[in-house]
């Protein structure tokens, strides 16, 4: 039982590490590169589109092959979001996120990778992001 828990945690650590290395290799851990993608009207850098295409090219068959399975290889039930409806809160949240992304060129993954490197601007951004996440339950009540 205990050994299984350790294996699950090691696996999650490995996933985070591979994900972070992928962000670094792809160039997405550089806000200037992300903003180069988001700046359509300037000299456009389409690299980020290829990052997503490469990621989906691997993830799509992996998710498709999962169909019919109920348990993951280490025994946990497979948690996939069940809701499929597009809701106002989903669109509102995504728009707010997109504005923040466009302001700094940072989304949560690259921000954490750069904070891990100890870079002050990323640490500041992550601190503010955590504050935003902690504010969410209060703001959520206003939305109802």
């Amino acid at each position: 039982m205990k050994r299984l828990q350790i294996m699950r945690a090691l696996s999650a650590f490995g996933v985070g590490l591979l994900f972070g290395l992928g962000l670094i290799v792809s160039g997405m851990a550089d806000p200037a590169k992300v903003l180069g993608f988001l700046d359509l009207s300037g000299a456009w850098d389409p690299s980020l589109a290829l990052v997503m295409a490469g990621a989906i090219a691997v993830a799509l068959p992996a998710f498709t092959a999962l169909r019919g399975r109920h348990r993951a290889l280490l025994g946990d039930p497979i948690h996939l979001p069940g809701t499929r409806h597009v809701t106002p809160r989903l669109v509102f949240g995504s728009l707010v996120f997109g504005v923040g992304w466009g302001l700094a060129g940072l989304c949560p993954g690259p921000a954490l990778v750069l904070a891990g490197a100890g870079l002050a601007p990323a640490l500041l951004f992550v601190a503010a992001m955590v504050v935003g996440m902690l504010l969410y339950p209060r703001l959520d009540r206003l939305f109802q």
């Binding site: 699950r8 696996s11 999650a12 490995g14 996933v15 985070g16 591979l18 994900f19 290395l21 992928g22 962000l23 670094i24 290799v25 792809s26 160039g27 997405m28 690299s47 980020l48 290829l50 990052v51 997503m52 295409a53 490469g54 990621a55 989906i56 090219a57 691997v58 993830a59 992996a62 998710f63 999962l66 348990r71 993951a72 290889l73 280490l74 946990d76 039930p77 497979i78 948690h79 996939l80 979001p81």
Partner: peptide
């Protein structure tokens, strides 16, 4: 590099759902 990094990110997502049953 964009494509190589993307493949690594996709592999991480595939690994997490297959081994831990979670969305990355």
């Amino acid at each position: 590099p964009a494509l190589a990094g993307g493949l690594m990110i996709g592999a991480a997502a595939a690994w997490f759902v297959w081994v831990n049953g979670r969305i990355a």
